[in-house]
Design a protein around this nucleic acid. Structure first.
Lengths: 256, 256
DNA sequence: CCAAAAGTGTTCATTTTACACCCATGT
DNA sequence: ACATGGGTGTAAAATGAACACTTTTGG
């Protein structure tokens, strides 16, 4: 049923919505904005907005990310110039376009997933009037209509994507600062997966996978215990074989 | 930058495009249509069309699939009523919306991936004036602008999705008839991955994974060799641990 | 009989898992 | 000294890869 000649088509608006995840206070957190206008006034929602006429979808998502957090996204995982925001990961998640998901007009939204290191910024953007970090795990467990539109579903899909990608990609490092210890990386896995992992075997696994971690030589001034080596993310884009989330008691890594 | 009050938004059209894959003549094939109107007149393209005002994205994709192939898609993998088309798999792939990808107007397309068993129908739909099966692997290896729009990229993404999902889901059965042998299933893996797999170890792996295959008791009348047991797809949605595509000579499974 | 495909058994290498044990620091 | 987290060694268990071998058909 491609248009045959004329250019009439059902009118629609295209937006991008962002699932921006980070680790805060030993919990997985998502950046949400409080809506001030209908529909769903007063409700929390994922940050997002219309795709501009001359923007690609990814550019629109990166622009929204910068507006909300001040971070610069890493659309292609190659550049490593050491700038603070350069390791922020941004990838397309999925599109959502059920008729009636926005009462005003037909809106198709392309959701993007962003993973950022722990940020002390509650909201830094110019436009984000009322942005805040919320517990993503609490929202997952709560009522399915706690967020505006179908954003509970989008958030659930984003968390599931993040959880599964930790298994077979080095994506967990996106939650870490540019230089990090194996222990910090392990805590990311434990928090995102809600499991606890054996520190010894985890250490051997990640340091033994070629290209996953690059030792930076130095050591941290430890909070407690022996100082740990620092690493940067390596060149590897896949983990073969993957890390499996099948260890220990699922409840042990909850909260903090 | 959510709209604040007024409802003005950059105008755009939303379409669905389908990557319909099947196995034909020991090769991975994709259903393409020949365009008759600009842009890209005469070029091959993925089948697709506008999303109707009251359709969800998945419904639009399912409608296009039926129009092009006569098949009924399986949006949620639960119903198993035995109808011929019920095992066709349809899932959202990704969205593509670079400005200028369609010279006429801003078009954002939501691509869907469909996997169907070997079909004797070159084209069966009412609207598909000029649909045909083409070698997907040949298109992957060919020039990157052989198809209209950005459809080479969409096709490549669809093939990559299919290849990786064979590893950790029972999706390969979507390429098989309702009842199939282990050998048929193995040939699917070999063709899609372009590798050759050890028949003995493959057999043990798939029959040993709980919920993957259900023995249907009977045996085929064999072409050659010992008759094989017949199986249906089981309830399992994930394969733990996954099948890995790291066996034997990559060239051996080519062509036929 | 022979070729071909199905299916089982077995062996060896690798990986995972569990856990004992030492290292280096703060208090 | 002791608690805490970092890191190595190692043995048992599970898994994967390679392949010998039997079964059952068609020609």
């Amino acid at each position: 049923m491609r248009a045959s000649g004329d250019l009439s088509y059902p009118p629609a608006a295209v937006t991008v919505d962002l699932v921006i995840l980070t680790i805060r206070d030993d919990d997985l957190a998502v950046l949400l904005v409080r809506r001030s206008i209908p529909p769903f006034p007063g409700k929390l929602a994922l940050p997002g907005g219309f795709v501009g006429p001359d923007e690609s979808l990814a550019e629109a998502a990166a622009r929204e990310l910068t507006e909300e957090t001040g971070l610069i996204a890493n659309l292609e995982p190659d550049a490593d110039d050491g700038t603070p925001g350069s390791q922020v990961h941004l990838e397309q998640l999925a599109s959502y376009g059920d008729p009636g998901r926005d009462s005003r007009l037909r809106v198709v939204t392309v959701a993007y997933l962003a993973l950022a290191p722990g940020l002390p910024v509650p909201h830094a953007g110019s436009d984000a009037a009322d942005a805040s970090w919320q517990s993503a795990t609490a929202l997952l467990a709560g009522p399915p209509d706690e967020l505006a539109f179908d954003h509970n579903k989008i958030l659930a899909d984003g968390i599931e994507r993040a959880r599964s990608k930790l298994e077979y990609t080095p994506l967990a490092t996106a939650f870490c600062p540019p230089e990090f210890t194996v222990g910090q990386l392990r805590r990311v896995y434990e928090i995102v997966w809600g499991t606890s992992l054996d520190p010894r075997n985890f250490h051997r696994k990640v340091t033994g996978t070629p290209g996953f971690l690059i030792e930076v030589g130095d050591s941290t001034v430890g909070d407690r215990g022996r100082p740990a080596r620092l690493y940067r993310t390596g060149d590897a884009t896949q983990l073969h074989p993957p890390l499996l989330r099948t260890t220990s008691d699922p409840a042990e890594a909850e909260g903090g």
